[in-house]
């Protein structure tokens, strides 16, 4: 059996197991869709409430009506960010969980090298994230969020960047921590805090200078930048820098993860 097929088999199995659990399905996809829907209830479609109240003309930087959807899309995207990170950080502990169960050892005895298992773990993180993104985006889209108002690129790039960065960071955490309690705590609390400090729910302008500077090391801030770059500004040209930074987050996380997981090699 080739390396590719072994990695594919293991990662597919891990992804399948994630989505076979009813409670996972609820927390990974159903709850974010429900929450996004409830949030979007309070948001108008164009978001220029101040301007319409005052009766002067308003234009978005792109100059089209579609980009006014950003107000709603950005909040729903904020919810998606929280659940994407929380899901993938929770999955970060999977490899250690397999070690505790004994299935990791069983896989090794089946002749699969440890490096392939780590690679499959990373691929499964990306697959879990991608599947979650598809379900949440389609679900919230059906409930009224116009993701594609300004074209596919506006949303697909930030989502892909987010999944890559979150998967890398999750692998990094798996390499640093093996205590499931700490990983769980991190997965439960950190994403909400990162979202708030990354400007996912309110503009960062209101935050003090120090908090604004901290945003530079917050992947959620860059994900929001990539979204606004696509929706509000010049598209790909505005998205390139935040996408590169998200990619960097992912790569750094993966390097830390791979190095760290080598310590735990049986």
């Amino acid at each position: 059996m080739s390396t590719f097929r072994r990695v594919a088999t293991i990662s597919f199995n891990a992804t399948l197991r994630t989505y076979l659990s009813g409670s996972n399905l609820f927390w990974i996809v159903a709850f974010p869709i429900l929450l996004s829907f409830l949030i979007s209830l309070w948001l108008g479609s164009d978001g220029d409430t101040a301007v319409s109240r005052l009766g002067i003309t308003y234009e978005t930087p792109r100059g089209d009506q579609a980009s006014r959807e950003f107000v709603r899309v950005s909040k729903v995207f904020g919810v998606y960010l929280i659940f994407c990170f929380s899901t993938l950080l929770t999955r970060a502990g999977n490899l250690h969980d397999e070690r505790r169960r004994g299935t990791l050892q069983r896989t090794l005895v089946a002749g699969v090298p440890y490096s392939e298992i780590v690679a499959a773990h990373l691929v499964s993180l990306i697959l879990v994230g991608a599947l979650q993104a598809v379900i949440v985006l389609v679900g919230t889209g059906l409930l009224g969020t116009r993701w594609l108002a300004t074209g596919w690129g506006s949303v697909i790039l930030p989502v892909a960047g987010t999944i890559f960065a979150a998967s890398g960071i999750a692998l990094g955490i798996a390499g640093l921590l093996r205590n499931p309690g700490i990983v769980q705590l991190l997965a439960g609390g950190a994403p909400s805090i990162l979202a708030l400090m990354g400007g996912a729910f309110f503009p960062l302008d209101v935050a003090p200078a120090g908090v604004q500077r901290l945003a530079a090391v917050n992947p959620m801030y860059w994900a929001m930048e990539a979204l606004s770059g696509g929706f509000v500004y010049s598209g790909w040209a505005s998205q390139a820098a935040p996408m590169a930074i998200l990619f960097l987050f992912g790569v750094i996380g993966m390097v830390i993860g791979v190095q760290g997981l080598r310590r735990f090699e049986p």
Partner: peptide
Amino acid sequence: PLTVIAPPGSIVL
């Protein structure tokens, strides 16, 4: 008419 150009939902707007 005067036109204000700014990101939707922003504080500057």
